[in-house]
């Protein structure tokens, strides 16, 4: 769920912008001294994350979802790289498709980039197999939806109850599809190009 501008209060916008900026700054600092070949690789991953949003994957309940690809990037490239890739894709998505607001970029980065990159990577490391994504995907989706619901609640935009359930439930369903696609992508990559699963994870 990309929160558009206009729905978050000033306090929530400020707090999430500061939090997002902190993670973004540390990610950039961690990747500052990367080997030169990593930059085009991150650019290619970000372009893929951005382009794959054009594909509508069928989700439970007859809906369709767009991949955000952060879990896959975290599994392939590591959490800091996945966070930077996610930030770049979210920024371009807000500019080009108005999918999520520029002022709410910090909130969207925390909900999608930070939660999915770091928690996704931590869970992935527990059992680094393609099938793990089937469990991690919906869990991350649920947590992202919950974070989004909390931000809206703190902004006075959502009362607890039906709104929380709607957002977290919809995101968990989307996460189910994301997890299934990520699992099949990881399976395909391990068959077709296993070298990609052995990249340095930063």
């Amino acid at each position: 769920m990309h929160i558009p501008d206009g729905f978050l209060s000033g306090g929530v916008l400020g707090a999430t912008a500061l939090g997002g900026l902190a993670v973004f700054s540390v990610s950039s600092a961690r990747l500052k001294n990367s080997p030169p070949e990593r930059i085009p690789l991150l650019g290619a991953a970000a372009a893929w994350v951005f382009a794959v949003q054009l594909l509508a994957f069928p989700a439970p309940g007859g809906a369709s979802v767009h991949l955000n690809g952060v879990l896959l990037c975290a599994a392939l490239l590591g959490p800091w790289s996945a966070a930077l890739v996610s930030f770049s894709a979210l920024l371009l998505s807000a500019l080009m498709f108005q999918h999520g607001g520029l002022f709410s970029l910090g909130a969207n980065f925390i909900n999608i980039g930070v939660i999915q990159a770091f928690l996704g990577f931590a869970l992935w490391r527990l059992r680094p197999a393609a099938s793990s994504a089937l469990v991690i995907g919906p869990l991350l989706g649920f947590l992202s939806g919950l974070a989004c619901a909390v931000e809206l609640y703190l902004s006075g935009r959502l009362a607890s109850g039906a709104g929380f359930l709607l957002l977290a439930g919809a995101q968990a369903a989307a996460g189910l599809a994301e997890g299934a696609v990520t699992a099949s992508l990881l399976g395909a990559l391990s068959r077709l190009k296993p070298g990609l699963l052995r990249l340095e994870r930063v």
Partner: peptide, 26 residues
């Protein structure tokens, strides 16, 4: 940060060729 600017610029450059790939494959 320079690393972000580089990744952001690469992403924009690669996106259009990927978009064409997606359209033709779909």
């Amino acid at each position: 940060p320079v690393v972000f600017i580089s990744v952001f610029s690469f992403m924009y450059r690669y996106f259009f060729s990927l978009k064409d790939d997606i359209s033709s494959k779909l």
